[in-house]
Design a protein around this nucleic acid. Structure first.
Lengths: 344, 344
DNA sequence: CTGAAAGCGCTTACAG
DNA sequence: CTGAAAGCGCTTACAG
């Protein structure tokens, strides 16, 4: 591989001039600038990343910490990863992705060795064990997902509480008063997946405000338990006219469950959910739903990180930003057949 | 951040001794070794990756080139990515992941700047434009997917031809003689997705050897075209008793299509496919299928790469390795109701 | 068993 | 407008 020394020699200038000609950080005469450029492309020169990082303390790499919890629905994760990767590249950054179990260890490794300039954490939980390490790392960090304590970090998430309310508003606005809510699996609550209870608690409260009954249950993450749990809850509350599904695995399985039961949507049952439209497209999930906007969240996180990296030490305050939920009507809801409360 | 100079000073030794004490590449007295170790953990010393890479020409990072073709079914890709990432970590390597459109450009960038020690390419096509750059990069490269020309590269793929034959054997062995084959979408063939025709051609040939009729069609990648195309082919060949689906998007959509048509599996129709068991689990796809083994392919690619990186210049010949297809019987096939050929 | 020193390939004050 | 030189933080022959 050609080094900057080779470039300098071939162009008949010093290494510093070669460097400045390429970076533009110092005026260089047009003639030498062009000569250097020619030599660079003739030699196919590309600066050595390690050497540059050593000299500048900047790697132009972002760390991406992905965590695959047991029993989690992995496919939806890809949307976040892609959004982050593409945004990063657009801003001149590469992505170092760590998927290992020990997220805190991975964080320390890539951060302390200076492999990355900053790091984004996916799938953050309420008391995420990675956050202490993130705070003591002297690299900016952004989270996708809301932890219990946001101090010292930039946090981005969907407004799940508002999402829950919006879906209840939608169903109750149509006249539904007997609802089923399928939440994420119990282990998501257990490990502190705050989005699960933020959504549920807000939905339940809002439903009560309408005087509606809402039956909240946890979904499952693996077949055949997924379908079994959906069948169970449908058996238990036959009078329900509306269903809110806050769980990817369940929403994918729901269609066949409803087919098998002969339940028509929306005439027999109105269904609403929360997922990304890419996800809905890939799996032909046809329900009216809040857009979970994974690409947008990833983009915001990366943009904030890059600003922190590149802005010269301005102590911008840390932000916690919630995306407002947007409802995409796919026609899976209608007014209930019978008047509310009529068969109680 | 502490440097090795800090460690050396605190331990009262030279920097070289500190280095050797940590690497073990030279005998160091027990006493100083322990003192260094203490200081290291007290200071939380981690070597600077850029400096180390500069000194050793090794980054302990593997490049991962992911490509998301338009209209491709992205979720299945995650399995490959995870297999690769986890295997790499187990061997002491991190993953630099590039997802941009211009795969050849990404390859050049990470390779020429020495950001990675080697690179694995996913979703390789017959005349993959990245391969020229890979060959002229002085880094080892491994492919997942079979290109037209494997020279100078290590290649890993499922034996799709054998997979096609195995599925035909399975159906024809049960007595089916009227078959439908749903291949990947036409644009996969167009851009040189060799797995598509390797599978199809072998399946068609094998079916003919049984004297069976096989109707090969391309699937679609987006709703509602996916379901529409499945319905179309089922309409066109009502006498078919067996179906081979070689397309993730179609296989996910197939269940509801069959439900809606009132077609029972396997009593009305035997269905076989090809996908990973993780995929089948996540999307409750219940068909007898060849395991596509993404994790295994990723693992093989990484292992080979690491051997090439770490083996001192032994000119091991390049390999092209095919995984033998394994059929997982999920009970979605049975003998056809009517004797073969009876209604022709 | 240990140290002083060179070198990896850049960038960037310092000088002119 | 340009060059010579120091320095980033490691590793590893070279010497002892």
């Amino acid at each position: 591989m050609a080094t900057i020394g080779d470039v300098a020699k071939a162009a008949g200038v010093s290494r510093s001039t070669a460097s400045y000609a390429m970076s533009g950080k110092r005026p260089v005469s047009r003639a030498t600038r062009e000569r250097v450029a020619e030599v660079v492309s003739a030699l196919g020169f590309t600066p050595n990343a390690g050497a540059r990082a050593l000299a500048t303390s900047q790697t132009h790499v972002l760390g991406l910490l992905v965590q695959f919890h047991e029993d989690e629905f992995a496919p939806a994760m890809l949307q976040y990863i892609l959004g982050i990767s593409e945004t990063a590249r657009g801003l001149g950054y590469d992505i170092l992705m760590a998927t290992e179990e020990d997220g805190a260890g991975a964080l320390r490794r890539i951060t302390k060795s200076n492999m990355v300039d900053a790091v984004v954490l996916l799938d953050v939980t309420d008391e995420d064990p990675r956050l202490d390490d993130l705070r003591s790392a002297e690299k900016p960090g952004a989270l996708v997902g809301l932890p219990g304590d946001c101090a010292g970090l930039d946090v981005f998430d969907l407004d799940f509480a508002e999402a829950g309310r919006a879906l209840i508003d939608h169903l109750c606005g149509l006249g539904h008063r007997e609802l089923i809510l399928v939440s994420p699996p119990a282990h998501v609550f257990e490990r502190g997946g705050a989005y699960a209870w933020r959504f549920r608690d807000a939905a339940v409260e809002r439903a009560r405000a309408y005087g509606a009954r809402i039956h909240a249950e946890c979904g499952e993450s693996r077949p055949p338990a997924i379908s079994a749990s959906l069948n169970r809850v449908l058996d238990r509350y036959p009078e329900a006219t509306g269903m809110v599904v806050h769980n990817d695995a369940s929403v994918v399985a729901l269609r066949s469950v409803l087919f098998e039961r002969g339940v028509r949507v929306p005439s027999d049952l109105s269904v609403v959910s929360l997922y990304s439209s890419d996800f809905g497209r890939d799996f032909s999930v046809p329900f009216t739903a809040i857009e979970s906007a994974p690409d947008q969240l990833g983009r915001m996180a990366v943009q904030q990180l890059v600003r922190r990296i590149e802005s010269p030490k301005l102590d911008e305050p840390y932000v916690t930003r919630f995306i407002s939920p947007e409802l995409l009507d796919r026609g899976s809801t209608a007014a209930p057949r019978s008047a509310p409360n009529s068969d109680r």
